Simulated scan of single mutants.
Amino acid sequence: MTASIQHRASRRQDSAAYTREAILAAASELFSSRGYTATTVNEVAAKARVAVATVYTSVGGKPTLLRALIERGVNEPRTTETLTAVASADDPREVIRLTAAGTRYSNEASREMVALMLSTANTVPEIAEAMREAVTAYRQALGAVAGRLDDLSALRGGLGVERATDMLWYFFGLHSWRQLVEDNGWSYEDAQSWLAECAGAALLTPEHAATKPPR
Rank of each mutant, 00 (worst) to 15 (best):
M1Q: 12
A3F: 14
H7D: 15
A9Y: 06
A9F: 04
S10E: 14
D14Q: 15
A16M: 05
A16Y: 03
A16N: 06
T19S: 03
R20H: 03
I23M: 02
A25Y: 07
A26G: 13
S32Y: 12
S33L: 14
R34T: 14
G35D: 09
G35A: 12
Y36G: 02
T37G: 12
T39P: 07
T39M: 08
N42M: 13
N42A: 14
N42I: 09
E43K: 10
V44Q: 02
V44W: 03
A45S: 13
A45E: 09
A46P: 11
R49V: 09
V50E: 03
V50D: 04
V52Y: 15
Y56F: 08
T57N: 02
S58V: 02
G61V: 02
G61C: 00
K62V: 01
L65A: 04
R67V: 04
L69Y: 05
E71K: 12
V74Y: 06
V74P: 06
E76G: 09
P77Q: 00
P77W: 00
T79V: 12
T80F: 12
E81L: 01
L83I: 00
A85M: 01
A87H: 09
D90C: 08
D91K: 14
P92M: 07
E94W: 11
V95T: 13
I96T: 12
R97I: 08
L98N: 10
L98S: 10
T99M: 09
T103A: 03
T103Y: 07
R104S: 13
S106M: 15
S106H: 10
E108K: 09
R111D: 14
M113T: 15
M113N: 13
L116V: 07
M117Y: 06
M117L: 09
M117K: 07
S119C: 07
T120V: 10
A121S: 12
N122C: 13
N122V: 10
T123D: 14
P125A: 05
A128M: 11
E129W: 06
E129G: 08
E129H: 11
E129P: 00
A130L: 00
A130Q: 01
M131Y: 14
R132A: 04
Y138C: 07
R139S: 11
R139M: 11
Q140T: 13
Q140P: 06
A141H: 06
L149R: 07
D151Q: 10
D151E: 13
L152T: 00
S153G: 11
A154H: 02
G157C: 13
R163H: 10
A164R: 00
M167W: 12
W169F: 14
F171Q: 09
F172C: 05
L174I: 14
S176W: 05
W177E: 02
W177S: 01
W177N: 01
W177C: 04
Q179R: 06
L180R: 15
L180E: 15
D183K: 07
G185E: 01
G185S: 03
W186M: 07
W186I: 00
S187Q: 02
S187R: 04
D190C: 00
L195K: 06
A196D: 01
C198A: 15
C198S: 14
A201M: 08
L203M: 02
P206Y: 00
E207V: 05
A210L: 04
A210S: 07
T211F: 11
P214W: 02
R215W: 11
